[in-house]
Design a binder for these strands. Sequence first.
DNA 1: CTGGGTGCAAAGTATTTGCATGAAC
DNA 2: GTTCATGCAAATACTTTGCACCCAG
Lengths: 135, 135
Amino acid sequence: MINYTNILREHNLKATPQRLAIADELYKKGHISIESLYELMVNKFSSISLATIYKNINLMLENSFIQEIKIPYSKSVYELTQAPHSHLACEKCFAVEDITIDLNSIIDIITKESSFKITSTNLVLSGICENCQLG
Amino acid sequence: MINYTNILREHNLKATPQRLAIADELYKKGHISIESLYELMVNKFSSISLATIYKNINLMLENSFIQEIKIPYSKSVYELTQAPHSHLACEKCFAVEDITIDLNSIIDIITKESSFKITSTNLVLSGICENCQLG
DNA sequence: CTGGGTGCAAAGTATTTGCATGAAC
DNA sequence: GTTCATGCAAATACTTTGCACCCAG
């Protein structure tokens, strides 16, 4: 179990027990929706408020401690900020996996062919994960 | 001005004046949010209800007449269904442009290296559009 | 201490639903 | 005529805000 106290502080966030627990869940699950996060947090802090979840998620997003991933035909999930990467989203079980894909050649082509200045890429590949293909 | 009557019917949607107007706005604007669509529709049908917008957008999505595009840090926009393509999203003016990028090589690599079965790609490149770079 | 965080309740925004009327086919 | 769409109002869902109290630094 990683100690996120200092990492939170580096992002200008006080290290409260609730925030440490959120960070820990994000670390363990990788990707998590607001709804699931709330359910997990209630187990640890029975009187936690959904407002606390929302306030923290929003602050963490503003301070780039976490990132939001918007999934087609599904709810957004959140993850700890890491190096840029893409995602595989299962349409059946809604699991989300990280995947590293080099998109530089694509960025180069667009930069040469248009005047649009790309600052970030957001690629979600939807489909069926290995587990769900078995069922 | 394209006549969408038959196209709507092919998607099992009755061709009402409201639906024809929605199709026409999507065609003209390319990409449009719920909010903007409602504002445009009120000009044509002063007593139109937001519920009608939502019901129609949802039906059109279910029948694949339109597609939803989720934009990071912004609202979703909708477009008429076309051949698969990607999007450029301006972080400043929130304009969305279509762009055709061949992602087959990426799909091939993932298909070979993992057991995930990709059924669709969703790539949004965020940045600053040409117009906003001038300002 | 002091600033910021938490939980609760209330407010605000977004989206969906039920139903009577009306239009498409 | 029958089926389905519309508009309205109400209901539900989602997210934010205000405030009193409390904790991290």
